[in-house]
Simulated scan of single mutants.
Amino acid sequence: MHTKRIGNLGRIVIPKDIMDRFQLGAGDLIDISSNETQIILEPHRESYVCAITGKVSKEAVKIGEAWVSKEGLKKLIEYMNQ
């Protein structure tokens, strides 16, 4: 675990070993989200693998720890309505 101080402008520095592990560099995009107890930083993805269909999609929503595409959501709704 790394402990970092938040700067005056709300900035933090991501440690080099974490940058290397996730293959991040200056100028790369990250997604920032949160839940009730955590701030979550993730490398930005241009596409996602749907947890329901297994297909790659450019549009998906995160539900828990899984990404679900529009097609996957439709299949899930159909399943729930049976």
Rank of each mutant, 00 (worst) to 15 (best):
H2S: 04
T3E: 13
T3V: 10
I6F: 12
I6Q: 11
I6T: 12
L9Q: 13
R11Y: 06
P15K: 03
K16N: 10
K16G: 03
I18W: 02
D20P: 06
D20F: 08
F22R: 05
Q23A: 01
L24I: 02
G25R: 03
G25T: 11
G25V: 01
G25A: 06
G25L: 01
A26Q: 13
A26N: 02
G27V: 14
G27C: 15
G27M: 14
G27S: 14
D28T: 05
L29G: 00
I30Q: 12
I30R: 11
D31L: 01
I32H: 04
S33M: 06
S34F: 09
S34Y: 13
N35I: 00
N35H: 01
Q38A: 06
Q38C: 05
I39A: 08
I40R: 09
L41D: 04
L41H: 02
E42R: 03
E42G: 02
P43A: 05
H44F: 04
R45D: 06
E46C: 01
E46D: 13
S47C: 00
Y48I: 08
V49N: 07
C50P: 11
A51T: 14
A51N: 14
I52A: 10
T53M: 02
G54S: 12
G54C: 10
V56Y: 00
V56G: 05
S57I: 01
S57Q: 01
K58S: 07
A60C: 12
K62R: 15
K62P: 09
I63N: 11
E65Q: 11
A66L: 13
W67R: 11
W67Y: 15
W67V: 11
V68M: 13
K70W: 09
E71C: 03
G72A: 10
L73D: 06
L73T: 08
L73A: 09
K74S: 01
K75D: 10
I77T: 10
I77N: 14
Y79G: 10
M80A: 15
M80C: 12
N81T: 03
Q82Y: 10
